[in-house]
Simulated scan of single mutants.
Amino acid sequence: MMYEYWLAAIPKLSDKKKMLLRKKIGTGKDIFYIEETKLMTHEFLNRDDVNTIMQAQKSRNLEEDFQELRRKNIRFLPHFSEEFPKKLLEIPSPPYALYVKGNLPPEDRKAIAIVGARKCTPYGEKYALEYGEKLAQCGISIISGLARGIDGIGQRGALMGKGKTFSVLGCGVDICYPKENRGLYADILEQGGGVLSEFLPGTPPVPQNFPRRNRIISGLSDVVLVMEAREKSGSLITADMALEQGKDIYALPGPVNSSLSQGCNQLIRQGAGILITPEILLEELGICGFPDTVKIDKNKKVLETTENMVYSRLDLYPRNVSSLIEETALSANEVVEVLVSLELKGYVREVSKNYYIKLK
């Protein structure tokens, strides 16, 4: 497998040409020891390709580099490996190999991607968390990109639902990007999920890597959910790739005057499914047997009377304290005390000075 890793790691040689090399010549070891004159006989290789391969044959640290993967608990899975995801072999441009920490999504379970804006609104955040949690509770694998905003929130929801989630990175699997998601990265692995990438360990998260990463997110998924997206965004690239791969797309509708809902509303206009509730989505996908724990409405948990009075008047859009005082006929002190109590319990959030939204 060391020589297969060597072939996968050759820079400036496309995955397609690497696959052709194995088909025409043989194993990675055969290619490592092949002579230049024999390489030149293959028409799909140009002069630069041959020079690249000959230069790679001079590698002196091959064994050491391969052992470093093991020290970092990184698995190397070439496309012909039995463990390589079968779904990825069916997409138009499958990766030559994957690098994996933890586990891969089980082949016998449905997988759903949750993607969306990095700078999401409380509205998008709420539903990414809710869908991630409730779908995971039904045994569905949640696929995403560990990014800020919707991606990471959807994956956090999956962990809250005691399920498994899998991150596809636009960098090496030994690099957590963004850094603020280090806790999420660790929790995903601890809870039996996985982190994977087609990029060599140590590869930095450069912009051109992310569109390539997106085709793997959609490729591993049976369905793609777009929670919030601008008119031109990486999430829509993922949706386009999913359509090309024959996957179903669902989008979260949003206000027509919100730039973060323009991409989703446009997807719906073009025929994407509409996200209304996780229960309805599961019905449409033919997944029954919703666990009893999922059916509990968290908004109906027992609250004090005054808390219910304030909580029931909040929504996903910010409400001012003064309007809550007017509607509840409570004193200013009582309303503020109730809001503080609700915030500590995780029911509400102050999104700007004296403006609150409902979280559950």
Rank of each mutant, 00 (worst) to 15 (best):
L7V: 07
E68Q: 15
S14E: 10
G28K: 05
I296C: 09
L129E: 00
V336Q: 10
G102R: 07
K162R: 15
E190K: 15
I274C: 06
N265Q: 02
D174Y: 01
D15C: 10
K17F: 03
P255I: 08
M227Y: 02
C288D: 15
K119Y: 14
M227F: 04
V335D: 01
G219M: 02
I274M: 09
K126D: 02
E43P: 12
L20H: 10
E284R: 13
D292L: 15
K12A: 14
T306A: 14
F44T: 06
S233D: 09
I112S: 04
A329C: 13
K232I: 09
I143V: 11
D187A: 11
T293P: 03
V115L: 05
E180P: 09
Y317T: 15
Q262M: 13
V168F: 09
N51S: 14
E133H: 03
N51D: 14
G132H: 00
P204M: 08
G254F: 06
K101W: 03
Q266C: 10
H42F: 15
Y317P: 08
A111C: 13
R349E: 14
K353I: 14
E125A: 09
K345Q: 05
N214T: 01
L220H: 04
M40A: 15
R182S: 14
I249Q: 03
D248W: 11
K179S: 13
S235G: 06
